[in-house]
């Protein structure tokens, strides 16, 4: 989502050095976490709905819930997470150097990050895409009508490049209004400094929800980029990558099978669905294959509910952000959430 050349270079250098230090390490990430008794999870310094501290200082959000589920699976307690705040500049170095065990900071899965920076993406927890928001008074109903518009855009991000590509391929011109943060963008947009605000659709929805008059603003139907956001870990410890990946899968599978935080105790006494039994640890011993106990997935689901419940409490339609499931529905509902079988 956000990457500058500078950061990329820095992170690449960091990743190389990180590999060297990781190799000299020896102890697996899982052992380190168990010895430490705490999962170091990198989150953003604040993205509405995804990670933010509440007034008691507890971190809440969609990305935070992934950290908590992994902590519950590994350490047995969703509270045993140390949230390390990272910025767009520091996130990759923090992960490569081992300062954090995993990064859950709405980071877009791209080829270069996966391959060149030497990270392993553990899946996608949110399929996002770049969209446009305009004032209704502008009388625009499609992004194709935005020729000549002034656009508020965060500088140095991939959204800036996507925007340029989109306008160029549609033979349109625009005037960029560079801004630094989302809060600044809200002020500029509301003050009329730009006709259009463009960022990820989830961010647009969250921003729109904060307006005094949300009904006067619309998010245009066009989504001009793919932004699959997900948690990631460093190369070098496949067991640890598997744990994060399958914790995510367990949350998705739980929703598909209808396991919720409300009925999980009941269901974990044993059911006649063998896959559910394997997931909840009453049958087989999947956890032992990557160094955990049988009830790892049960604890991960109990931490914040299944994928659907996490979505609903943090960013779903009942929250102020009010995102529809859309692409993030289960594959059975026409979405892209598809957990491989637990077998």
């Amino acid at each position: 989502m956000k990457a500058t050349l500078f950061v990329g270079t820095l992170a690449a250098a960091a990743a190389v050095a990180g590999m060297a230090s990781a190799a000299s390490h020896g102890a697996s990430v899982l052992d380190q976490i168990k010895a430490r008794g705490e999962l170091n999870c990198g989150v953003s310094t604040g993205v509405n709905g995804f990670s933010a501290p509440d007034s008691a200082g507890e971190w809440q959000g969609f990305d935070v819930a992934v950290c908590r589920a992994v902590a519950a699976a590994v350490l047995g307690d969703p509270k045993k997470v140390k949230f390390v705040t990272t910025t767009g500049q520091t996130r990759f170095t923090a992960l490569a150097s081992g300062e954090i065990d995993m990064l859950a900071r709405n980071t877009t899965w791209t080829f270069s990050r996966d391959v060149d920076l030497k990270f392993t993406f553990a899946g996608v927890n949110y399929y996002d895409g770049q969209g446009f928001m305009v004032n209704k008074a502008l009388g625009v109903s499609s992004a194709k009508e935005l020729d000549g518009a002034t656009v508020c855009i965060q500088t140095g991000t991939t959204t800036e490049l996507n925007l340029a590509d989109y306008f160029k391929s549609n033979n349109m011109s625009y005037e960029p209004v560079p801004i630094e943060t989302n809060a600044e963008a809200q002020q500029q947009y509301l003050a009329g400094a730009c006709d259009v605000y463009t960022t990820d659709a989830s961010g647009l929805a969250a921003t729109r929800a904060t307006f005094a008059d949300p009904e006067n603003h619309i998010v245009l139907p066009e989504i001009i980029s793919k932004e699959p956001l997900g948690p990631l870990v460093a190369h070098g410890d496949d067991q640890w990558a598997d744990i994060v990946r399958w914790t995510m899968n367990a949350l998705v599978a739980a929703e598909e099978m209808g396991v919720t935080s409300a009925n999980i105790e009941e269901l974990s006494k044993g059911t006649n669905n063998p896959e559910m039994n394997r997931l909840l640890g009453t049958e087989g011993d999947l956890g032992a294959m990557f160094g955990l106990d049988a009830a790892w997935a049960k604890r991960a689901i109990m931490a914040g509910g299944n994928y659907g419940e996490i979505f609903a409490t943090n960013i779903g339609e009942s929250t102020p952000i009010g995102l529809a499931r859309g692409l993030n529905s289960q594959w059975t509902q026409g979405g892209l959430m598809y957990a491989p079988p637990f077998r």
């Binding site: 310094t45 604040g46 705040t85 969250a206 904060t210 929250t319």
Partner: peptide
């Protein structure tokens, strides 16, 4: 704030990220 330490400016960002106070 640029290295992820939550000083007052960083916290103002974090506080805004809470749905209650966004905006």
């Amino acid at each position: 704030v640029f290295i992820g330490i939550l000083d007052p400016i960083g916290l103002s960002n974090a506080i805004r990220a809470d749905s209650n106070w966004n905006g």
